[in-house]
């Protein structure tokens, strides 16, 4: 126990301010307050892997590490689509995940946002479209923001989440 406490104290707080581009940085600084004023609680994010290679998942994990401190911004990952405001979708959408992706999206309460994460989510990426891949996410459900990259860096994913939220004509179902 003593060693655990000592380790925590020694490492200290490592959270950084995310290095975002000008437009999204403006929202970043007021994000926690804005989320609270709209939702009265943290923004719930749910992730669905619709056919990814698992590369994007690694960077979504990284977004949850102490450097980025996502929960400190008022964004938390939730276990059920019923608790989610925003859906992160990775991968090209495999035909075998079509039904599960639709069900997950349908299970989210309104209003809801969708962010397609990674090059594959845009148009199928390196996997393209074929007998088993339906291609990009918006071939299946409406998408509010796209995050390019293979895999995108954690800050790019955060930027995508912010872009979806502040989009003037954000999809609200």
């Amino acid at each position: 126990m003593f060693r655990t406490i000592k380790q925590i104290a020694r490492v200290g707080i490592i959270t950084e301010t995310a290095k975002l581009s000008g437009a999204t940085l403006k929202h970043y600084t007021t994000l926690q307050r804005d989320i609270y004023s709209v939702f009265g609680r943290a923004l719930g994010v749910r992730h669905v892997d619709a056919g990814s290679c698992n590369g994007c998942e690694l960077e979504i994990h990284a977004l949850n590490n102490a450097y980025y401190n996502l929960e400190g911004l008022g964004i938390r990952f939730v276990a059920s689509p019923r608790q989610a405001d925003l859906l992160l979708v990775t991968g090209p959408v495999s035909r075998n995940m079509l039904a599960a992706l639709h069900q997950t999206h349908d299970a989210m309460p309104e209003p809801k946002w969708v962010v397609a994460v990674g090059a594959c989510g845009i148009d199928g990426g390196i996997f393209g479209r074929n007998y088993a891949s339906a291609g990009g996410v918006d071939a299946v459900i409406p998408v509010d923001a796209w995050v390019p990259g293979c895999p995108p860096q954690p800050e790019a994913i955060l930027e995508g989440i912010l872009a979806a939220l502040v989009k003037p004509n954000a999809h609200t179902g």
Partner: peptide, 14 residues
């Protein structure tokens, strides 16, 4: 399993 079957082996052939 098989949910993320996205035709990789077929894709290789292109």
């Amino acid at each position: 399993l098989g949910y993320v079957h996205k035709g990789i082996e077929k894709r290789f052939e292109s």
